[in-house]
Amino acid sequence: MLKIGKINHLEVVDELPFGFYLDSGQQERILLPTSSAPKDCEIGQFLDVFVYHDSEDRIIATTKTPLALVDEVAVLRVKSLTSVGTFMDWGLEKDLLVPFSEQEKPMSEGVNYVVYVFQDPETSRLAASTKLKDFLSEDGHDLKAGKAVELIIAGRTDMGYKAVVDGTHLGLLFKDEVFKTIRVGDKTQGFIKRIRDDGKIDLCFQFHSQRARKSLSDQIIEDLKAHGGISTLTDKSSPQDISQRFGVSKNEYKKALGALFKQKRILLAKDKISLLEE
Rank of each mutant, 00 (worst) to 15 (best):
S215Q: 03
S137K: 09
H9G: 13
D176P: 05
H208C: 06
D48C: 13
A68I: 04
T65Y: 13
L203F: 08
C204K: 05
V184Y: 05
V117S: 15
I266P: 04
E11Y: 04
P239L: 08
Q219I: 06
D158N: 09
E138W: 01
P17K: 09
V51G: 01
G19R: 07
E93V: 07
K94C: 03
L16A: 12
L2F: 07
G91H: 02
Y161A: 07
G247L: 06
L2A: 12
A128N: 13
G258N: 14
L170H: 02
P121F: 00
T157P: 05
R58A: 07
E277C: 03
D142K: 12
R29D: 11
S35T: 10
V84M: 08
V13E: 03
D23K: 11
K264V: 01
M88Q: 02
G85W: 03
K254C: 10
A128S: 14
V84T: 14
A256M: 01
I60A: 01
Q45N: 01
S83T: 09
I221A: 01
T86H: 14
T234Q: 13
V111L: 11
L233V: 06
F46L: 00
E252W: 08
Q244R: 12
K180S: 07
G44N: 12
L47Y: 10
D202A: 11
A68N: 08
G167S: 14
H53L: 08
P33R: 00
K175E: 01
D235Q: 03
L31S: 00
I192S: 01
Q27I: 15
Y253G: 10
Q240S: 08
V117Y: 15
S101W: 00
P33I: 07
L143C: 12
V184L: 00
I182D: 13
A212K: 08
V111H: 14
D54R: 02
W90F: 10
E72F: 15
L260M: 00
Y21F: 07
K64R: 11
G199S: 03
G171K: 00
D223N: 07
D271V: 01
R213P: 09
